[in-house]
């Protein structure tokens, strides 16, 4: 009986392990440990979404690649501070001098997952070079379906920069970034 139970436990563990490998989650929060200082790094934020006649949702698993060969090779997954379906996003603060391109995201519609590889030719409006320390609002970019193919378009949402900053503010509570965010919010409100 005992042996049966043990076998059952092992089977359950194997099942859980195999299931957990199928489910990967998107990031919704930042690790505050070793957070770079606002004086030497850039905090990028904005909107990456999918706009349809039913409204706006978020692009999934957005991956930014560092493309400047003189800086560290690194991939950052966009963080969704409000929820994984809200288009507001930000990245971990990146080193000044690094350059970033959005090279991948995916979209789920019903049972279908579409993988988008954007290619490296040219700097698009949602790509950026971290030229100076502090905040960098990248704007609002929406994937829109055309007659034959999708395209990314700049479509400013009502809330704009202010709403995006309000959404990411709680993530930086108690860090040096809080004051920088508050300062910018004050400027936007005045």
């Amino acid at each position: 009986m005992k042996r049966k139970r043990a076998a059952g436990a092992v089977a359950l563990l194997v099942l859980l392990a195999s299931l957990s490998s199928c489910v990967s989650t998107q990031r919704t929060s930042i690790t505050k440990k070793d957070l770079p200082d606002p004086s030497v790094s850039t905090l990028v934020f904005g909107y990456l979404g999918h706009q349809t006649m039913f409204g706006v949702s978020a692009l999934q698993y957005c991956k930014y690649y560092q493309v400047n060969p003189d800086s560290e090779a690194r991939v950052i997954d966009a963080i969704r501070p409000s929820s994984v379906s809200n288009p507001v996003f930000f990245l971990d603060p990146v080193a000044v001098g690094s350059s970033w391109q959005l090279l991948y995201f995916q979209m789920t519609s019903g049972n279908t997952i579409t993988y988008f590889y954007l290619g490296m030719v040219g700097k698009d409006a949602y790509d950026f070079r971290a030229e100076k320390p502090g905040l960098l609002y990248i704007g609002s970019h929406m994937l829109v379906a055309g007659a034959t193919q999708y395209s990314m378009q700049v479509r400013e949402l009502v809330g704009g920069e202010e709403e995006a900053l309000e959404a990411i503010r709680p993530q930086f509570k108690g860090t040096a970034w809080e004051a920088v965010i508050d300062q910018r919010l004050k400027e936007l409100k005045s």
Partner: peptide, 12 residues
């Protein structure tokens, strides 16, 4: 396909 990856590809 740079380093034979889809993500790091250049399309003309």
């Amino acid at each position: 396909r740079v380093a034979n990856m889809s993500a790091t590809s250049l399309k003309f």
